[in-house]
Design a protein around this nucleic acid. Structure first.
Length: 204
DNA sequence: TTAACGATTCGCT
DNA sequence: GCGAATCGTTAAA
């Protein structure tokens, strides 16, 4: 996993997530390269985490979450938005960190072209779907390993890391017992916090 | 085969 | 701040 290997190898998503803050992830394709300095992430586990895509077991979509650490898991949200995770934990035990927001530090021109409606550069990669758009994630990236077209470079551990319940995940206790969203303080690229996903009357 | 639901975003008030 | 849009994935029939 690039220079990240030593520090992150062997960790699950929960302990790795705060260490990813400040790290730079870069993706290169035919259009060029875009790199983002991560400011907000969320951890997702497996069978014990009702908010995780892996909670109900392995499917074609979430298979990368069960794969080796250092892999990418890209999925479609609401049929449109591409969101990306970095896989952690031993192979077979699903655990991943969702990349929620960041600051574009390379390829700003390309990022602006991919999101023409955005005025402020600080908002280019605010929110997982938006970050996905500027990075240019493709479903073909899902299941691939870091070190190819996608590179991760860790930064020194952040002196201050803020925690809160995960955005868009409704849990019995309101998520208070699972403050698995991590973000850096004072970052304009951090998406505003929402208590939970909109929930319709019917239950599952 | 069919129906329901989102790890969200954007535009309008 | 609120509500609709949108379509692939999943689970149920």
């Amino acid at each position: 996993m690039d220079s990240a290997a030593g520090l992150l190898d062997g960790r699950d998503a929960l302990s790795a997530a705060p260490l990813l803050l400040g790290a730079v992830i870069r993706r290169t394709d035919a259009e060029g390269s875009v790199a983002v300095r991560l400011t907000e992430v969320e951890a997702y586990l497996g069978a014990d985490d009702p908010g995780s895509h892996a909670f109900r077991g392995r499917t074609a979509r979430n298979a990368p979450m069960f794969g080796p650490p250092g892999g990418l898991y890209v999925y479609l949200s609401y049929g449109i938005h591409r969101c990306a995770n970095i896989v952690f934990g031993p192979e077979g035990e699903p655990s991943a960190v969702l990349l929620r927001a960041g600051e574009v530090v390379e390829g700003v021109e390309l990022a602006r072209r991919r999101r023409p409606a955005v005025r402020a550069d600080a908002h280019l990669a605010r929110g997982p779907g938006n970050l996905g758009t500027v990075m240019g994630w493709s479903l073909a990236d899902s299941g691939t390993l870091l070190g190819g077209d996608v590179e991760l470079r860790l930064a020194a551990p952040a002196p201050t890391v803020l925690r809160s319940p995960r955005t868009g995940v409704a849990l019995p206790g309101g998520g208070a017992e699972h403050p698995w969203r991590f973000h850096l303080p004072g970052e304009p690229s951090v998406s505003p916090y929402r208590a939970s996903a909109p929930r319709r009357a019917s239950a599952r």
